[in-house]
Design a protein around this nucleic acid. Structure first.
Length: 351
DNA sequence: TAGATTTGACCTTC
DNA sequence: GAAGGTCAAATCTA
């Protein structure tokens, strides 16, 4: 399939270009008075980019290559160029076609799983895991052998932007504070990772329900306040597929220039999508299936705590079973010392 | 009133 | 046939 190949090449070139851009940024950082963390982060990003590119090259010819898997995913069956009018005008027919396509391709759909530990804020409200996208719940199902029902979500912009990303959220049996989130498909909508706060996330919505009528949750919350989770565990499956998913990590072009570190961190935490994308990006095993460990600096946690932020998911990832060329990328971020002139908004920095 | 959630029914896969 | 996934009408909420 020619379009598939060109898509591969495009992705590959994009990765390489990104790596180059990041290297340029690193060079600027080396010249400027940037912190070691900033540099280390850039190095990590560069390595990640090239690692992805290498993986694409390695897998490019394989029939089971992740790129081809993505290309066969239902979301790709409908061109992203198809506007809402197409969706609306041929709704019933298209729905049927989509349904068929989804059914046929369900097994091949890009899929990965995150285990998200919900964080309990100081006010006892459980913090949901925001992923920077807005989701609409379309179903809930009791799963055999599972204590908790599984919830099904799809992108809010599915109809308007033909975004076929979906996710399933299931509370863990062993640890009710852990949510197993399975993502399917890639976001093609332009809303992911934007600095505009998304509508309430599924987890938030679930929290709302639980706050209404679930004393268990409240007890859990109160109990967990004393043991504030300092990390969030992300396990990944089907890493090859994850490889092809977007990593919408992107700083907005907001003027970081003159803000203090605390202000910067606060702004990061204020911008849920930004913060989650930050986590997602760091956690993304896109580079060949590595599980990165990321622990927020205490400074960040303090900010989150002081603001009684319920969204302050603090994330880590298991380092088990990594096949990443990057050996155990543990890099706990110390309080970030940002170069006030660091060009976050320069094109290509965070893609 | 528009948009989101709930939930029973239906469809697909195994 | 069972289980998982999705649809869509009814209901809720801001």
């Amino acid at each position: 399939m020619d379009s598939g190949k060109s898509c591969e090449q495009k992705s590959l070139v994009n990765e390489i270009i990104e790596g180059m851009e990041l290297a340029k940024q690193l060079r600027l950082c080396l010249n400027a008075k940037s912190s070691a963390d900033t540099k280390q982060f850039l190095v990590q990003r560069i390595l990640s980019s090239y690692e992805k590119a290498l993986l694409m090259l390695k897998c490019g010819g394989s029939p089971q290559s992740p790129i081809k898997a993505i290309a066969s995913a239902p979301e790709s069956l409908m061109s992203a160029n198809e506007g809402p009018c197409c969706v609306d005008n041929n709704r019933s027919l298209q729905d049927h076609q989509d349904l068929t396509a989804v059914s046929k391709k369900r097994k091949e759909m890009a899929k990965w799983t995150e285990h998200v530990t919900r964080v309990i804020s100081e006010n006892g409200i459980e913090g949901p895991h925001e992923d920077g996208h807005s989701w609409r719940k379309y179903g809930q199902k009791d799963i055999l052998g599972a204590k908790h029902p599984r919830s099904y979500y799809r992108c809010t912009y599915r109809n308007t932007q033909s975004c076929w990303a979906t996710k399933q959220v299931q509370r863990s049996d062993e640890d009710p504070t852990v949510f197993e989130i399975t993502y399917k498909g890639k976001h093609t909508c332009s809303h992911g990772g934007s600095s505009v706060p998304p509508p309430p996330s599924p987890e938030k919505q679930e929290r709302k329900r639980h706050n209404h009528n679930n004393t268990y949750q409240q007890q859990q919350s109160q109990g967990n306040q004393m043991s504030f989770p300092t990390n969030l565990r992300v396990n990944t499956e089907n890493l090859d597929d994850r490889e092809n998913t977007t990593s919408p990590f992107s700083f907005t072009s907001s003027p970081f220039g003159s803000i203090s570190d605390d202000a910067f961190l606060s702004s990061m935490l204020d911008d849920k999508s930004l913060f989650d994308n930050f986590n997602q990006s760091l956690l993304s095993p896109a580079a060949g299936g590595s599980n990165y460990y990321f622990e927020l600096p205490s400074q960040m946690r303090n900010i989150a705590g002081n603001e009684q932020r319920s969204e302050s998911d603090i994330i880590s990832a298991n380092n088990s079973s990594t096949n990443s060329p990057i050996p155990d990328m543990d890099f706990p971020l110390e309080p970030v010392e940002l170069d006030p002139y660091f060009p976050f908004d320069s094109p290509g920095f965070f893609l």
